[in-house]
Computed example of a mutant assay.
Amino acid sequence: MPISAKAFQDWLHQAAPSASTADICRISGIKRTTLAQQLVRGKVTETTVVSISRALGLSPLAALASFEQFAELASPAPPPTPAELVSQVATMDLLRVVISRSSPVQGGDGEEGGSVLPALSPAPHATSVRNWVDAVDDGELRHRVSAATGVAPQNYSAQLTANRLSPELAFATARAAGVGLTGGLVATGLITEDEAGWPPGAKQSALEALSNGELTALAGERLQALGKSLRRQEQEQAQTEKIWEHLG
């Protein structure tokens, strides 16, 4: 759902009326050739809008909401669900929490106290997109997204396997799931948790609300998925090496 070049230029003129294209590229870190190519094609990426809004000290969420296709972001959004919050906890962080719970700290009087929750990494992480979709999927989500966007289910699944999702599909997925529209944008890394308005410490609170059994089961599912991914990579690497051997 790229931004039309005209809409982008109108927004940029209002956001930074005295700044030149060179100025914008310099402060945002965007290459001039990259921005020029996008303008020539008539489509500017959401990433470009977010980068420029950050450089100008503007809210990326408000910047996106100023464009028609993201206008819904201007409306108050429900907070992320506990499942969405937990989905954005990296697997390694999740395992550290499991270990932390099994190793309670000692209180000042020598008795066991509560466990100390390790600091959590910010989203996104290596499986953030797949985890987020799984967290909001009721079993029919992929079909609803496909019907709404015209994207074939297999193409949608291919993006999830690669742990990526275009902003358009992330937006459509959140809408089809009936959750806050910023969840997918956070999972894909387009905007940060803070920029999305997620409450500070929300992920920690969601983790603390999980029982030991729920936490351990979730960690087991993550490890199983990680094992499958690693085995697939090893098989692909072995096939690549065989091909090179035959060619060599």
Rank of each mutant, 00 (worst) to 15 (best):
V98G: 01
S205A: 15
W198R: 12
R222M: 13
D10F: 07
L181S: 05
D93G: 07
E214T: 06
S75T: 10
A209D: 13
L247D: 04
T127K: 06
Q154L: 14
R144G: 02
G201Q: 12
T149C: 02
Q233P: 08
G139E: 05
E208P: 00
T182Y: 05
W11L: 07
Q38C: 12
T149Q: 02
D134M: 13
S115E: 05
A135Q: 11
Q38Y: 08
L210V: 08
S103L: 15
S146F: 06
P200R: 08
A15I: 01
I191F: 04
S102T: 03
T173G: 02
E111Y: 10
A238G: 01
A170H: 08
S211E: 12
I24K: 00
A174G: 09
E208M: 14
E140P: 00
T240D: 14
L73H: 03
E241C: 07
G183P: 02
G178S: 04
P200V: 04
A206P: 10
A170D: 00
L141D: 01
K242Q: 15
L95Q: 15
D137E: 08
R144E: 05
A71I: 08
P200Y: 01
E214G: 00
V40H: 13
I99F: 06
A55D: 07
A209M: 08
G180D: 06
E195F: 03
V44N: 02
E72H: 07
T81M: 08
V116N: 15
L223F: 06
S53Q: 04
A162R: 15
R222H: 12
A152R: 07
A62V: 08
A74L: 06
S229G: 08
E46D: 14
R41G: 15
I191S: 01
N163T: 05
L226D: 14
N155L: 11
L64V: 06
L226T: 12
N131M: 06
I243L: 15
L190H: 04
T33N: 12
K6H: 14
P79Q: 13
D23K: 13
A126L: 11
S102N: 13
S20K: 02
Q88A: 11
E214H: 09
S4I: 01
Q106S: 14
S211H: 06
P167S: 01
G139T: 06
K228Y: 09
N131F: 01
T48N: 09
M1I: 03
D10P: 00
P17Q: 04
Q9R: 08
